[in-house]
Amino acid sequence: MGFVTVSPSPHEHTQGSVPKLMYGVLIALLPAFLVSLYVFGIGALIITLTAMVSCLAFEYLIQKYLLKVTPSISDGSALITGILLAFCLPANLPIWLVILGSFVAIAVGKMSFGGLGNNPFNPALVGRVFLFISFPVQLTSWPEPIVNRLSYLDASTGATALATMKEGMKNSESIPEIMAGIPAYTDMFLGKISGSAGEIAAIALLLGLVYMLIRKIITWHIPVSIFLTVTLFTGILWLANPAKNPDPLFHLLSGGLMLGAIFMATDYVTSPMNTRGMLVYGVMIGIITVVIRVFGSYPEGVQFAILIMNAITPLINKYVKPRRFGERLEDG
């Protein structure tokens, strides 16, 4: 026996680690990836791989040559950023745009703030929103589902349900008229629709949510509060005027809501630190999303809603404290 070790308690530590958590998220993303492979074929594969590899490469290069620290790419966080970025891009996006998006995500969104743990905004969303604002045309022409599995850049394009809805509303068509041009809810649920690579299949994303909840990677508070808020808000609008507003299920299944609520809003670094704060955060994301979708000029609002709430997270952390033991609710 050598020297005994002396350290303050506790002397036992969970087997959990950052890489384990991150790889857990990757596993949860797998179903959505498989669906996107099935629906968009080679295009989905190309952009996902490109985003993953370039995110890893940028993180490695920046850590090694700019920050001069030991690269920590093996923790899996850059991989997640890459996959999430690819998941909210159209599967027919040119490779150079994917690489540019990855660069912005990692260099600007993450490393400029000091790397994992210090970034105020979700890096994947920073990359995605940068691309969306700089290259709106390429970012809003999605490939048709299923039919384009073997074509990449030359895929025939279609419109997403949300874009169709926005367009129809602009032309003052009534909801039933618009709905005729939108895929059935079962197709939306299973992912047989046009849209960004990973956001299309609600079922695959929900599967990922269940997995993450079982593994205790995340808690239910953020996704569930987003879903409930969106349902409630759009439900009120729908009940008030069914001819002008689509029903809540449409909002839940369309666009990036599922992907955003399950994988992006729940990003550890940029979401609040306690369950009360998470509920506030989720509700606010839900409200902002619906406001942008219904009243704004963009068809989709989840990404902006999450980024806005990312900015407010430090405030939430400061003012929304967890329920302390011994704090009595009745006598304040």
């Binding site: 743990g117 808690t219 306690n274 967890p322």
Partner: peptide, 17 residues
């Protein structure tokens, strides 16, 4: 680095941060 996963807040039996 702290990745702000909030697990410490979740497990604290006294509701601290």
């Amino acid at each position: 680095n702290c990745i702000r996963c909030s697990k410490c807040v979740t497990v604290c039996p006294m509701g601290l941060e």
